[in-house]
């Protein structure tokens, strides 16, 4: 059964169309990413799924129900941007309070340990750093043992270590069978965590695929860089069908091309007993795919 189904969602605020036409489905147990530049309509889409905004047109079903159905609040945990807590409420009080909202809450001591908040239990909300507030927010989204967790800009404001810890936590939550919708603009995060992605731009879905699928959809060239002990004869490589361009500067070599470029180049080098040092392969990343997709949709606008 499909967990979330969004069909031709449209939402405008006055004259500003925030979401023009968005459709996608989220399947059970997956981590589904919603990617897009600022102002693309991600947050409005998520708010509509949470039942906080009523769509102007289109339909949304969450676990087969209308998002405004209050019974869904027990099954959907939400961490939204721009939502806070009273300044003087402590971490422990917030978790203890939110735990009473649900019939079978998670053990919040465990949750705070996993999120690295164990030392901060008696700290008031106003005294937490941005990253700690963010982690508390994630804990509150997970405290009701939801079937679906919707996390908006999950790791914004976290330092790299905390970001990686949070990713581990999200994966462990998914492993317990929770379906996760992740709104993000970090490509690394999307690439690492998401099973499938919807790229939204100007209120429309411009791509819907796996991270690898999005990258493969780009017919980009690869680039190989290395150094050799002696300056390399460019002609050795320019003849290969995979190679489109060779550029040398002193002992630095840069080869661009397509297909199985790395194998073709290293085979020639090995045959000539040339040793390549500091060899680096640059492949298209989700970053490239994202920039390409959103640039194209900007042009079409």
């Amino acid at each position: 059964m499909t967990v979330i189904e969004v069909q031709n969602l449209r939402k405008a605020y006055g004259d500003t169309v925030a979401v023009r036409d968005v459709s996608f489905t989220v399947e059970p147990g997956e981590i589904f990413g919603i990617l897009g530049p600022n102002g693309a309509g991600k947050t409005t889409t998520v708010e509509a799924i949470c039942g906080l905004r009523r769509p102007d047109a289109g339909t949304i079903k969450v676990l087969g129900r209308n998002p405004e159905d209050r019974s869904l609040r027990y099954e959907v945990g939400v961490q939204l941007q721009e939502s806070g807590l009273p300044d003087r409420l402590t971490v422990a009080e917030a978790l203890d309070l939110y735990a009473t909202f649900y019939p079978e809450p998670a053990d919040w001591h465990e949750l705070t340990r996993d999120l690295g908040l164990g030392e901060k239990l008696s700290t008031p909300y106003a005294k937490l750093s941005g990253g700690q507030k963010q982690r508390l927010s994630i804990a509150l989204a997970l405290i009701g043992r939801p079937k679906i967790a919707i996390l908006d800009e999950l790791t914004t404001g976290l330092d790299p270590q905390a970001r990686r810890d949070t990713w581990d936590l999200i994966e462990s939550v998914r492993d317990r069978g929770v379906t996760i919708v992740l709104v993000t603009h970090f490509m690394e995060e999307a690439e690492r965590l998401c099973d499938r992605l919807a790229v939204i731009d100007h209120g429309e879905v411009v791509a819907l695929s796996t991270p690898a699928g999005l990258i493969a959809g780009l017919d980009t060239e690869q680039r190989i860089r290395f150094r050799t002990a002696e300056p390399l004869e460019e002609a050795l490589l320019t003849g290969l069908p995979e190679v489109s361009k060779v550029h040398t500067r002193g002992t630095q070599v840069e080869v661009t091309g397509t297909g199985n470029l790395l194998y073709a180049v290293t085979a020639v080098l090995a045959q000539r007993q040339i040793i390549a040092v500091d060899l680096r392969v640059e492949q298209a990343s989700l970053d490239d795919a994202f920039v390409r997709l959103t640039a194209r949709s900007a042009k079409e606008q």
């Binding site: 906080l52 939400v78 939502s83 909202f101 649900y102």
Partner: peptide, 10 residues
């Protein structure tokens, strides 16, 4: 956003 957060809970 205290009320906004609460609106997403039961």
């Amino acid at each position: 956003g205290v009320l906004r957060r609460l609106a997403t809970t039961p």
